[in-house]
Design a protein around this nucleic acid. Structure first.
Lengths: 188, 188
DNA sequence: ACGAGTCCATTCGGATTTGAACAGCCGGCC
DNA sequence: GGCCGGCTGTTCAAATCCGAATGGACTCGT
C-alpha cells in the first residue's frame, strides 16, 4: 500500500543524521517555527487537499461537462436571489482574480450556462445570471458531485471530526477575509 | 424545451423557506447526500483552503523569487538521499501531471535551481538534482514561508485541533493514494 | 457643476497547465 | 535473439490563468 513511502522515508533517515538535519532545517522542522506535530499536519493537509481537489475535478469531468469552477459558479448563482450575482461578489466568493472570473463567465456564457447582464444600479458593473440550461446542468451534475464528496471525504469522518474541521476552517476563513480586507484598506 | 418552467417550479417551491429549499436541492444540501453539518464543513474547507493557498503564494512571491510549487520541489529534493529524485516520484509526491512537472523542472533549471541528469539505472528516466543555488534559495525562503504558515494557519490551532486535522488528512491521503493505485491497476 | 481620486470589469500579453500524441527504453515471452 | 506490450518522460497545440494597463463610471469635495 503506502509502504514504499515509509521505506523511502526510512532509508532517507538511515543515510545519516545529516539528511535528517537538512530536513529539519530547510523544509519542515525548524523548531522555532513549527513543531513536529504541526509540520506533519501541514504536510498531510497540503498533499491530501491537492489530491482531493484533482480527484473531484476528474470525477466531475467524468460524469458531466462541468469543471469544478463551473459547478461552483452554478451553485452560487442558484442560491442567489434572482439567480444573479455581481462579478465582484462572485469573484470574491470563488476566490478568483477578476480576470479569471471574466474568462470563466465568458466560457460559460458561450456554452449557454449563464448570461451576462448590465447592472441596473451601477453602469460600470455587470452581473452573471443563471440560465435554465445552467440550472439543468447543475441539477444533473449535483448528485454525482455530492456522491464524490461523500465517498472521497465525508463518509470517512465522524461527527467529532466534522465539528472540528468546521470550527477550524470557518475561523480560518474569517481571519483570511479580514486580513485581505485590512490589507486592501491600510488606512485603518 | 420550456426552460422557464423549471425556474417557475423552483421559485414556487416554497412552503415557508423557499430559498432554503433551493439551497438544499441543487447545490449543497440534498439531505440524502450530505447533512447540514457536513455541507457547512465542506464549504468552509473549500473556501478557506483556496484562500489560504493564494495567500501563501502571494507571501512567498513577496519575499522570494519562488512559487509555492518551486518551494515544494526544493523541499522534496533537499530531503531526498543525494538531493535527487526521479521525475515520476517527484510528480507523484507533488500531485503534478507529468507534463506539468516537465515544465516546472525546465523553468527551475533555467533559473539554476535544479539540474536534470540522466538516470543511471533506467535510460528512459531522468532525475532532478538540487543545485547549490537551489539549496540557498530554499534556505532564504524557508523562514519567511514557515512564518506565513504559522501566522495564517498554525498559530490559531490548539493541540487538539492539530491532532484532529493530522488524523483526518493522513487518513484521507492514504485513501486517495490507494484509490489512485487501484484505478491504475484494476487487475488487482 | 467639475475635477481628482477611486472602483468595476475587461482587455492584453505572456506565463502556466492540460491532454493527447510521441520517441525511446524496459521486461518478459516465444 | 527478437518481437510485443507497457512504462518514462517529453513535446505540442490548445485551453486556462495571472498581472498590469485600460476605459468608463461612481463619489466626493469644492
Amino acid at each position: 500500500m503506502d509502504s514504499s513511502i515509509n521505506l523511502r522515508v526510512m532509508s532517507a533517515n538511515r543515510s545519516g543524521s545529516s539528511s535528517q538535519n537538512l530536513k529539519e532545517c530547510y523544509c519542515c522542522g525548524m523548531s522555532e517555527s513549527l513543531d513536529r506535530q504541526r509540520m506533519a499536519c501541514w504536510r498531510a493537509y497540503i498533499e491530501s487537499s491537492q489530491r482531493l481537489f484533482t480527484q473531484l475535478e476528474d470525477d466531475l469531468r467524468a460524469d458531466s461537462e462541468l469543471t469544478f469552477a463551473d459547478y461552483h459558479v452554478l451553485v452560487l448563482l442558484s442560491e442567489a436571489p434572482g439567480q444573479r450575482l455581481r462579478m465582484g461578489e462572485l469573484a470574491s466568493r470563488l476566490v478568483f482574480s477578476p480576470s479569471r472570473l471574466t474568462y470563466q463567465i465568458t466560457t460559460m456564457q458561450k456554452r449557454g450556462l449563464v448570461a451576462r447582464e448590465a447592472c441596473p444600479v451601477d453602469r460600470r458593473g455587470s452581473e452573471a445570471v443563471l440560465t435554465a440550461a445552467g440550472l439543468l446542468a447543475l441539477r444533473e451534475a449535483a448528485p454525482h458531485h455530492l456522491r464524490s464528496v461523500r465517498t472521497h471525504l465525508m463518509d470517512d469522518l465522524d461527527d467529532t471530526e466534522v465539528a472540528c474541521l468546521t470550527r477550524v476552517f470557518e475561523r480560518l476563513g474569517r481571519r483570511l477575509r479580514a486580513d485581505r480586507d485590512a490589507s486592501a484598506t491600510p488606512s485603518e
